[in-house]
């Protein structure tokens, strides 16, 4: 198989999906759809984050007290709820995450 042909095919498919609704600038969605779109960020990002905390490798549940993804994720949620500040959440969360990973001996040092 030609790898380049595959790459071009993948590129075309990906682009068409991403461009799909940008292609119709005059399109006005029905009210129901417009309402639904308000929930896209919350729904999609939560659906990425929560499994990322509970199944860090994407396959196996890691419900344990040495799961830094889970604990630091909870810390992030707390910081975000209290401060509503994005950079504080990221900075604080990463700090907690790496402190925990160091504490648990999970860093490849």
């Amino acid at each position: 198989m030609s790898i380049w042909l595959l790459i071009l095919g993948m590129a075309l498919i990906t682009f068409v999906i991403r461009y799909s609704l940008f292609a119709f600038p005059d399109l006005r969605f029905p009210a129901l759809v417009r309402q639904g779109l308000h929930y896209v960020p919350t729904a999609v990002l939560t659906a990425i984050v929560v499994p990322g905390m509970l199944l860090p490798d994407g396959q196996h549940w890691h419900l344990a007290l040495d799961n830094a993804y889970l604990l630091a994720g909870l810390a992030c949620i707390a910081i975000a709820a209290l401060t509503r500040h994005l950079l504080a959440t990221i900075g604080g969360g990463l700090l907690v995450f790496f402190l925990l990973r160091g504490l648990f001996g999970q860093l490849p040092l």
Binding site: L45, G73, L86, L87, G93, F97
Partner: peptide, 13 residues
């Protein structure tokens, strides 16, 4: 984890 932290910081508020 940086990505998760960012997404959390976007979603929670």
């Amino acid at each position: 984890f940086a990505m998760l932290a960012t997404f959390i910081g976007i979603v929670v508020p």
